[in-house]
Every structure is written in structure tokens, then in C-alpha cells.
Amino acid sequence: MDEETVSRDHVGSLERGLAVMEILARHPQGMTLTEMAEEASLTRAGARRFLLTLVATGYATRDGRVFSLSPRLLTVARTWLGGGSLWSFAAPIMRAVAAQLNEACSAAILSGPDVVYVARIPGRRILSVSLEVGTRLPAYCTSMGRILLGGLTPGELDAFLRQATVERRTPKTITDKKLLAEAVGKAQADGFAIVDEELELGLRSIAVPIRDRSGSTVAAINVSTQSARFSVAEMEREILPALFEAGQRIEDFFVV
């Protein structure tokens, strides 16, 4: 499709409305009209129209001056995730990995600066935050994020790193963007990524890519564990083979 056709078919108002929805998702406590207008770079009148449209269609609620997303969006997501999607197919495979290792096994996709969990088989509780389908974590300091960033083109990765807000989550977090690019490049070359206590102290995770039939990275799966249970070398030796096998079985979904 040429650029002229794309431009003609592009619906700018829908794009801005979806951006408003994504901003609301990042503020579960709700936002005022003024706050939305400022964050979305809209006029107050424009922000008001989008917010009231979301309220009218049931995707948002209004409590006085504060607008929040409604559970309807979760219903849409659950319908997609459960309706014969890749992840309903992948769940038994991931469950077998979790049972074999007695650790959590998760899957995620890239969404803006974050990874978004699309499937999760719980293991031992190792994080101070609750992880479930829909949870967002920063891509730059997670193993699935490094894998997904490795699937970007060089231009896309450069743009990501320029725009990313990189914060030191632990003393081990890589915050230098040049070093981050090198870590992503290593994950791409190795075919897996290990992140050692960069998101949270005591947490290690290892991830591999899920590729479609064209070879594009569409998702990642990982196993996360306590640092006291597996060293980095043990993760590569004992966990990685199970993850590679699971990833291959999930990728088979694309060619059946």
C-alpha cells in the first residue's frame, strides 16, 4: 500500500481517541479534563469530546471532574485473549514449563515503552507487585522487553531509546542508553535474554522470542525466578532448553 493510500485511509480522530484511551490506562486513579488536555496535547474542547465519547460508549466513567477507564476494555481484551487466540493455544505449553521448573512462565508483547503481559502461569510469588494479564512493565529492564526490542529495526530501536524514560530501578539497572543498545543487540544475537536483578532485587528472568512464519518477533515468553534459587549460569543451563522447546511449540501455531 503506497503512502498516499495510507494517508487517505488514515483516521486521525480515531488515532487521537485511542491515544486518549491509552493515557487513561496509565492513570488508573483517573484524570481531569485539564490534565488530559495537557498530556494528550489537545485543546480542552477536543479532550472533552473524546472523554465524553468514551463515557457515552461505556469505555470510561465520570465521577465529578474525574474521568477513568471502565471495565469494558478488559472485557474486550479478555474476549480477544480467550477467543481461540495464540495465547489460549500457548497456555498448556506454558503451564508445562511452569510445572517442570516450579517457576512462573509468562508471555508479553511490546506496547510503546512497555511490555504488556498477555498470558501468565503463576509460580512462586517473587515480585512485590502483582503480575497478571494486562500488567505493564518497562521494556528496557525486563528480559521479555530486551527480546522484543531486539525484534525492532535499527531505526525503530534508535527511536525507542531516544524517547524512553530510563530510571534506575535497582543498583544493577542498566541506564546508559548505549549499554542498553548493546544488551538488546546481544539478546538478538544470542536468541535469548537474561536480566539479573535490574527490575527488582532478588529477581532474575530469562526470555526467548516467539516469531511468526515471516521470522518477525511478535511476542516473548519468559521464566522468572528468585536469585537464590538459580544462578545466571544455572538459568542458562537448566531453564533455557525448556523455554526454547516451548517457544518452538508455540511458533508451530503460525504454520498449522
Results as ranks from 00 to 15, higher is better:
Gly151Arg: 02
Asp190Arg: 12
Leu14Pro: 00
Pro71Arg: 10
Gly58Ile: 06
Ser231Tyr: 08
Gln29Val: 10
Thr173Cys: 08
Gly58Asp: 11
Ser227Phe: 01
Ser85Gln: 07
Leu24His: 02
Gly12Thr: 13
Pro28Leu: 08
Ala25Lys: 07
Ala37Gly: 04
Pro154Trp: 04
Glu15Asn: 12
Glu200Asp: 11
Val223Lys: 03
Thr165Asn: 15
Leu74Phe: 13
Val184Cys: 02
Arg49Glu: 11
Thr61Leu: 09
Arg237Ala: 13
Gly155His: 01
Arg125Phe: 12
Leu18Ser: 12
Met94Cys: 05
Leu127Thr: 14
Ala181Leu: 00
Arg95Lys: 15
Arg249Lys: 14
Arg49His: 12
Ala40Gly: 01
Val66His: 01
His10Cys: 12
Ala96Ser: 14
Phe253Ser: 07
Val208Lys: 05
Thr173Glu: 08
Leu199Arg: 04
Leu148Cys: 03
Pro241Thr: 09
Val129Ser: 14
Leu51Gly: 02
Asp252Ala: 15
Ser205Gly: 11
Arg229Gln: 14
Arg26Asp: 15
Gly83Thr: 06
Ala219Ile: 04
Gln226Cys: 09
Cys105Gln: 04
Phe254Thr: 14
Val232Met: 06
Glu198Asp: 13
Cys141Tyr: 02
Gly185Arg: 04
Gly82Asp: 14
Ile239Pro: 05
Trp80Val: 14
Val55Ile: 09
Ala104Lys: 01
Ile239Glu: 04
Gly151Phe: 00
Leu51Pro: 06
Arg162Leu: 02
Ala99Asp: 13
Ala193Ser: 15
Ala181Arg: 04
Thr173Gln: 09
Glu132Pro: 04
Arg168Val: 10
Gly84Tyr: 06
Trp87Arg: 03
Ala119Ile: 05
Met144Val: 05
Ala181Val: 07
Pro209Phe: 01
Ala77Cys: 15
Ala228Cys: 14
Ala108Tyr: 00
Ile93His: 02
Asp212Cys: 03
Leu127Lys: 08
Glu15Met: 10
Ser41Ile: 08
Tyr117Met: 11
Leu74Tyr: 15
Leu148Pro: 01
Leu243Phe: 08
Ala40Asp: 03
Ala193Glu: 01
Tyr140Glu: 00
Gly202Asp: 07
Ala219Tyr: 04
Leu199Cys: 08
Arg44Tyr: 11
Ala242Thr: 06
Ala99Lys: 13
Ile147Glu: 00
Arg65Glu: 15
Ala40Cys: 09
Arg168Ile: 04
Ala108Leu: 04
Asp63Ala: 15
Glu238Gly: 05
Ser85Phe: 07
Cys141Ala: 15
Ser231Cys: 08
Ile23Cys: 10
Thr173Leu: 03
Met1Tyr: 15
Leu161Ile: 01
Val256Pro: 09
Leu101Val: 07
Phe192Tyr: 10
Gln226Asp: 13
Gly215Phe: 05
Ala246Lys: 06
Glu251Trp: 00
Ser41Pro: 03
Val11Gly: 11
Ser130Pro: 07
Val129His: 12
Leu33Asp: 03
Lys186Gln: 11
Val116Ala: 10
Ile194Met: 06
Ile210Leu: 06
Gly185Asn: 10
Val76Ala: 14
Ile194Cys: 00
Gly83Ala: 11
Val97Gly: 01
Pro154His: 06
Pro122Ala: 10
Arg16Val: 09
Glu198Gln: 13
Gly64Trp: 03
Ala220Leu: 02
Val55Lys: 08
Val66Cys: 06
Ser68Cys: 15
Ser7Asn: 12
Glu234Val: 08
Pro138Arg: 05
Lys178Gln: 14
Gly215Leu: 05
Gly202Leu: 00
Arg169Ala: 11
Arg204Tyr: 09
Val133Tyr: 05
Met21Glu: 11
Phe244Ala: 14
